[in-house]
C-alpha cells in the first residue's frame, strides 16, 4: 500500500502510467459524449412542459455535477499533497482548477439561457444557480491565490489550504442557500427537478454525465503530464525524454 502510494507519487511513474491510461479515457469521452449528444438532441422526446428547451439539461446537469466534483477532487489532491508531500497531487490540483471554473461557467451560462424560456428572464436567484455562482467565486479565489505567490511552493500550499477550507464550506453554503431560497421563493419550480423522468430522457443524460467525467479525467491526466514536464524540466529522465524524441 505504502509502496504503491510512493510509486504513484513519483512523477516519472505517473508520467508513464498516465500515458497508457489516457487514450482509453479520451476514447470513452468521445464515444459517450457523441452518442449522448445525438440521442439527447435528436432522439429523446420533447418535454411536455418545457418543449425542446429541456434539451439544455444534457449539458447543464453534467457540467454542474462536474463543477462540484472537480472541487472535491481538487481538495482531495490538496490533502494528499499536504499530508504525504506528493508533488504530482499538487500538479493535478493546479490543472483541475481552471477546468472546474470552466465547467461552473458552463453550468451558469446554460442555466441562465435555460431560464429565459422557462422563467422569462435571464437570471433568477434560483438556489442552484446561486450556489453555482458562489462556487465560481471559490474557484477564482483558488486560482488567484495560487498565482499571487512569488514562490511556487508557497502558492501550492496556500491554494491547498484554501481548497480544503472551501470544500468544508461548500455543503454549508449549499444548504444555507437552499434554505434562503425556500424562504424567499416558496412556490416556483426548479428547472432540473421533476418528479419522474422517462427512461428515454435520462439514458442520454447518464451517458453525457459519464462522458463529461471521462473528459475531465483525460484532460487532467494530459495537463498533469505537461505540468510534470514544466516543473521537472531539470530532471535526468525529462532531459533524456527530450533527447530521445528530438
Amino acid at each position: 500500500m505504502w509502496a504503491f502510494i510512493h510509486k504513484l507519487g513519483s512523477p516519472k511513474w505517473f508520467y508513464d502510467i498516465s500515458e497508457r491510461l489516457q487514450p482509453w479515457f479520451w476514447a470513452a469521452a468521445a464515444m459517450l459524449i457523441l452518442v449522448g449528444s445525438v440521442w439527447g438532441l435528436a432522439f429523446a422526446p420533447a418535454d411536455y412542459q418545457q418543449g425542446n428547451s429541456f434539451r439544455i439539461i444534457y449539458v447543464h446537469v453534467p457540467a454542474a455535477f462536474l463543477a462540484q466534483s472537480i472541487f472535491v477532487g481538487m481538495a482531495l489532491a490538496a490533502v494528499v499533497f499536504m499530508v504525504w508531500k506528493i508533488k504530482v497531487a499538487d500538479m493535478a490540483a493546479a490543472v483541475m482548477a481552471p477546468l472546474g471554473a470552466a465547467m461552473t461557467f458552463i453550468a451558469l451560462f446554460s442555466g441562465a439561457v435555460w431560464g429565459l424560456p422557462t422563467w422569462g428572464t435571464w437570471w433568477m436567484w434560483d438556489a442552484r444557480l446561486t450556489s453555482m455562482l458562489i462556487l465560481l467565486f471559490l474557484y477564482f479565489g483558488v486560482i488567484a491565490l495560487r498565482g499571487a505567490f512569488a514562490s511556487r511552493d508557497s502558492g501550492s500550499r496556500a491554494a491547498s489550504v484554501l481548497a480544503m477550507v472551501g470544500v468544508v464550506n461548500i455543503p454549508i453554503i449549499k444548504y444555507s442557500v437552499d434554505w434562503w431560497y425556500t424562504l424567499h421563493q416558496p412556490a416556483s419550480f426548479t428547472i432540473t427537478s421533476r418528479p419522474s423522468m422517462p427512461a428515454e430522457m435520462w439514458w442520454p443524460l447518464l451517458l453525457m454525465v459519464l462522458g463529461f467525467y471521462s473528459f475531465f479525467i483525460a484532460l487532467t491526466l494530459m495537463r498533469t503530464r505537461s505540468e510534470i514536464l514544466r516543473r521537472e524540466s531539470n530532471k535526468r529522465w525529462v532531459r533524456d525524454l527530450a533527447r530521445e524524441e528530438g
Binding site: 449528444s37 438532441l41 425542446n52 428547451s53 434539451r55 439544455i56 449539458v59 447543464h60 457540467a63 458552463i106 451560462f109 446554460s110 439561457v113 435555460w114 429565459l116 424560456p117
Partner: peptide, 9 residues
C-alpha cells in the same frame, strides 16, 4: 436557447 447553451459548452 438550446444551441447557445450547447455551442458554449
Amino acid at each position: 436557447y438550446v444551441w447557445a447553451a450547447w455551442c458554449m459548452t
